[in-house]
Simulated assay, not measured.
Amino acid sequence: MIPSPTHTSNQDDIDKAFLTDVELAERWRMSPKTLRNLRVQGGHVPFIRIGRLVRYPR
């Protein structure tokens, strides 16, 4: 039986290249909700979607 990896190297690459909304909000010193609102309202916050996830470039 082959063990299934719980955390792939592909996921590691994504984690290194992109920030979550909480991480970026901390960096920009604002709440995650404010950051999400800026994104939705077209506040020029660069982001990508990975499936249902939203990530921000570092």
Rank of each mutant, 00 (worst) to 15 (best):
K33A: 13
R52D: 05
R39C: 15
R49L: 01
S9V: 14
T6L: 15
N10F: 02
Q41R: 14
A17D: 06
I14W: 00
R39K: 15
N37Y: 13
Q11F: 09
R49K: 13
N37G: 05
L24I: 05
T6D: 11
I14A: 00
R39W: 12
H44L: 09
L38Y: 13
V40R: 07
D15L: 11
G43M: 15
N10M: 03
L53Y: 05
D13V: 10
R55T: 02
M1V: 11
E23V: 08
G43E: 07
P32L: 10
V40A: 09
F18P: 00
P57S: 10
L24E: 01
S31Q: 14
D12N: 10
F47R: 01
V40H: 05
L24H: 03
R36N: 02
I14L: 05
Y56V: 02
Y56C: 04
V54L: 04
W28K: 03
S9R: 14
P32I: 05
A25Y: 03
F18V: 02
R27L: 14
L24T: 02
D15S: 11
Q41V: 06
N10T: 05
T6A: 07
V22A: 13
K16N: 06
R52L: 13
L35F: 12
R55Y: 00
P46N: 05
L38T: 03
T34S: 15
T34Q: 14
V45Y: 08
T34N: 11
V45T: 04
R29C: 08
P32G: 01
T34V: 14
P57Q: 09
A25I: 10
R49M: 02
D21H: 09
R58E: 03
S9Q: 15
G51E: 05
H7A: 06
P46E: 03
R55L: 10
A17M: 04
L24N: 04
A25P: 05
R55V: 03
L38M: 13
R55H: 00
G51L: 13
I48L: 00
M30W: 11
L35I: 01
R58W: 10
F47L: 02
R36P: 00
H44Y: 14
F18M: 06
R49N: 06
N10G: 00
G42F: 04
